[in-house]
């Protein structure tokens, strides 16, 4: 197995699948400002996807490009976290997921700026600025809604309870993680778990939300052995145009 390729697909697929989920809100946001914010976040993530998958395609060396990887792979080829592919449901769950992801992604990308692979370090340095902005916003929205009305608090607590069994998948390490740590491309995700949990505790406390107990995490997304039923539907929507008209250009 080409561990670097595997690693890059995980980074790119996380950004792509979450970006696609966020873009589903375009035109449906609860207020115009929120609609714009969700679409902007999606745009940043799709931009980051182009960088990660562009490099992945080069490493693969099979004559494919970032678009081929995004549009011509099937669900079992994807390496994203399961949490990112589950449906948006409501605004509360969308923002809670964004927060749980951003809280990991910011220290993760910060660590990757020191990667032994200069391309990884460059992409991380570019992406981390955007991720910090996302974290700032998802944190303040989680607090505003958690510390809002009884109704909004209920939405956020239910969102957290629903997402919790998915949230820690990123810490389920495998041979690729160990290989990347060995050569200094990336730290072990588990080395950031303490920091992640601290960010969560501080924010959830301020939001009057209760962090669920338990360390159980659904696994399979980032290693590609088991996705939820939702990923296929997401890909069907995302990929239909380039698959139906493979040579289309505009």
């Amino acid at each position: 197995m080409n561990h670097l390729l595997e690693f890059l697909l995980r980074q790119g697929d996380n950004a792509l699948v979450l970006g696609q989920r966020m873009s589903e809100w375009c035109g449906h946001g609860p207020a115009l400002e929120e609609d714009i914010a969700l679409a902007n976040t999606a745009l940043d993530l799709i931009g980051q996807t182009q960088l990660w998958l562009g490099y992945a395609a080069e490493v693969e060396g099979a004559g494919r490009d970032a678009n081929d990887l995004a549009f011509m792979r099937d669900a079992y080829d994807f390496r994203n976290l399961l949490m990112l592919e589950v449906p948006n449901a409501d605004f509360g769950r969308t923002l809670m997921r964004q927060f749980l992801f951003d809280a990991f992604q910011v220290p993760w990308l910060q660590a990757l700026t020191d990667s032994a692979d200069p391309r990884v370090a460059e992409i991380a340095a570019k992406s981390v600025k955007e991720a910090m902005y996302h974290l700032d916003r998802s944190t303040s929205t989680v607090i505003a809604l958690g510390d809002g009305t009884a109704e909004s608090n209920g939405f956020m607590q239910r969102a957290l309870d629903y997402l919790w069994p998915y949230a820690a998948e990123v810490f389920a390490e495998d041979a690729t993680d160990f290989a990347m740590a060995e050569v200094g491309v990336a730290p072990l995700p588990s080395s950031l778990r303490g920091q992640w949990k601290k960010t969560l505790q501080a924010t959830l406390q301020e939001a009057h939300l209760t962090m669920p107990e338990g360390e159980f995490a659904h696994k399979g997304g980032r290693i590609g052995v088991r996705h939820t039923e939702h990923l296929g539907h997401l890909l069907a929507t995302m990929q239909v145009l380039p698959r139906s008209y493979p040579d289309a250009s505009w």
């Binding site: 400002e33 929120e34 714009i36 914010a37 902007n40 976040t41 745009l43 940043d44 902005y133 916003r137």
Partner: peptide, 13 residues
């Protein structure tokens, strides 16, 4: 501040 995002990625409202 009205929103952290605006009409283009580089702006806020």
């Amino acid at each position: 501040k009205v929103s952290q995002f605006g009409s283009t990625p580089c702006k806020a409202l």
